[in-house]
């Protein structure tokens, strides 16, 4: 697996135009996040971000996760679903959450597997989602501590926050292992084969180097 340097230029396009794939990814992320709102740490945004990085790359690494988060955050605050955070706290913690998902997408871009529609490719995607999820949780737990938990009345140490984070990270890892293979299979198929009704096509578009 090669590690690639970051570039704002998207990868070579697959069978579906990148902007269409990006729109589908954003729609899947928004819908999934809203449907799973009542399940703490079970969310599809990590999977969507990773897949955007792997399949699209470039500026989509920023565009896709940020669009999903902005769309759902605006909607949930308008609907009154969101919690007790003040605008300042939202900006503080939100900066960590948004940048965490962009980081996940960048990891997807840097460690993208060969894009062939194979079990092995999905397995590599799932494997990459594990460190990406752990890094995201460490980053956002640090953000929570910095913006909220180190202040009165909590006065929690970073160690305490990380300790409390453990069960949530386990669920988040399970979430990634559910959504990365599901979305990975779906979007990798679209990327390599195109729309199912569009007729026969070659088996894959390998626009990357070796794993």
């Amino acid at each position: 697996m090669n590690v690639r340097s970051f570039s704002l230029r998207p990868h070579k396009r697959g069978k579906v135009p990148p902007w269409k794939l990006a729109l589908l990814l954003i729609a899947a992320g928004v819908l999934g996040r809203l449907v799973l709102w009542e399940m703490p740490n079970v969310e599809p945004v990590m999977a969507v971000a990773l897949i955007a990085g792997m399949l699209l790359g470039g500026y989509y690494v920023i565009l896709v996760p940020v669009a999903v988060m902005v769309g759902t955050d605006v909607l949930t605050y308008a609907l009154g679903w969101s919690g007790a955070y003040s605008p300042v706290q939202i900006l503080g913690l939100g900066a960590f959450v948004y940048s965490g998902f962009v980081l996940a997408a960048a990891i997807g871009q840097a460690y993208r597997p060969r894009l062939l529609f194979r079990t092995r490719t999905i397995a590599v995607m799932a494997r990459i989602s594990i460190p990406a999820t752990i890094l995201f949780d460490l980053w956002t737990a640090f953000g929570d501590w910095l913006a909220i938990s180190r202040h009165p009345p909590m006065n929690w140490s970073l160690g305490q926050v990380l300790e409390m984070q453990v069960p949530f990270t386990l669920v988040h890892l399970a979430s990634s292992l559910i959504f990365v293979p599901i979305f990975g299979t779906l979007f990798l198929y679209l990327h390599t084969h195109g729309w199912p009704m569009a007729g026969p096509s070659p088996s894959g578009t390998d626009d990357s180097g070796p794993e």
């Binding site: 079990t119 999905i122 799932a126 453990v166 069960p167 386990l170 399970a174 292992l177």
Partner: peptide, 22 residues
Amino acid sequence: AFAFFAVLLVAIAVLFAGASAL
């Protein structure tokens, strides 16, 4: 594909069980 799916299911179950226990 079957082996990958089985490993995935076991990993997900273990992670959920671990979270519940903690």
